[in-house]
Design a protein around this nucleic acid. Structure first.
Lengths: 202, 202
DNA sequence: CCATTAAGATAGTAATTAATTACTATCTTA
DNA sequence: TAAGATAGTAATTAATTACTATCTTAATGG
């Protein structure tokens, strides 16, 4: 396993570090992740981390960048393959819950960053990510109305909020049950109700 | 202000402490709240806290108890005043977002506790709260189907998850915008879509 | 009005944290 | 294969954490 290799090139070490943080965030509250824990998971000493990142904050910045790139790429790929706006919204939903089920730490990291007081760089990055996410969503919802797939009187902003919320609700469910696979199983049922809520006819 | 009074009776001091934690959770990540910060907010020294609570964990237990009692009472009051199951669901939703807008720290505390590894007492208390919440919800949804207000083929479990998620989505929105009043303004729009999603006709 | 007691202040503790240090092992390449 | 660059180690730092022991003050009932 590369994760336990020593003397990795700096860029690989940084990449592995990001992965380890995402991994640890699946197991505990992201704000409880210490630099010692990150290093230990890689089989490194704590001090070695600071050869590759100037501060702990810089690690979180890299993690946020990875999440943003990865998530937006995944949902864009899914959406572009769909033929109708409604199909694109569904594909986006499924791609998102697949990503989250593969990386259960991700929503915790995002939610955690948003809670931080003041204007830290990682927090602003998460806000940017969610803004971009919302833009894509609203574009699709607009297109769906134009294509007469959706309720013409739909409140676009509310529909976007509920879309994000539906995923967050599934995340809550997995936190209650402790079963990360639950989100994929329960996802379609939740989306069906959402779909009915924004749709043209029932 | 009672909060800054000295020499409060022990039970009052404990009550004030709980309020202060809820207050602080609105401003920062709940897991970043230190005993020093709690004491400072009350105009007390840090050591004085431990006259009233044996451990920090015990403070969190009291906070969770307060939230559970308060939230369940509020939604029960709201639901019992409604005449139809659907009206009760709506009243429950509005009561919940009102409570959350008055105490923005509450959903953060609940989400934070759920993330903790292992089986801490506060975590189990939150799981119990959410289970009780879901029970009430599913009872109302069942009644709504019987009363022919709701889609007879409704996936009750998914509908409950989406209900909780819709609130969580609104919370996310407030975290992005930083505007706690937003949740009350945007709430009805989100609920309208939810309502359409579970409803019988459109 | 004073003695008792509950509440709080003061001044600590040990453990943990992110970060820094001087040093060593390993890889690359000319 | 020697020299320089890169990656990691081990020990230590100052700050912060939850928690405790001891002293002081304020409220209250006889």
């Amino acid at each position: 396993m590369i994760k336990y290799s020593k003397n990795l090139p700096a860029d690989e070490r940084r990449a592995v570090t990001v992965q380890v943080v995402v991994e640890l965030a699946a197991e505990r509250n992201p704000s409880d992740i210490t630099t010692a824990a990150i290093a230990k998971r890689m089989g490194l000493t704590q001090g070695a981390l600071f050869r590759h990142f100037p501060t702990k904050e810089a690690i979180l910045e890299s993690v946020t960048t990875w999440i943003a790139n990865r998530l937006l790429t995944k949902i864009d790929e899914a959406a572009t393959q769909a033929s109708t706006p409604m199909a694109a919204i569904e594909a986006m939903f499924m791609a998102h819950i697949k990503f989250v089920s593969e990386h259960p730490g991700v929503p915790r990291i995002l939610f955690g960053e948003l809670q931080r007081p003041g204007d830290t760089l990682p927090k602003k990055m998460v806000q940017t990510l969610l803004r971009q996410y919302k833009e894509r969503l609203q574009r699709l919802l607009d297109a769906g109305i134009s294509a007469e797939e959706l309720n013409p009187n739909l409140d676009i902003s509310a529909a976007a909020a509920l879309f994000i919320g539906s995923i967050q609700g599934l995340v809550m469910q997995t936190l209650i049950s402790g079963d990360t696979a639950h989100i994929v199983k329960a996802g379609p049922g939740v989306f069906a109700i959402y779909c009915r809520g924004i749709g043209r006819t029932v």
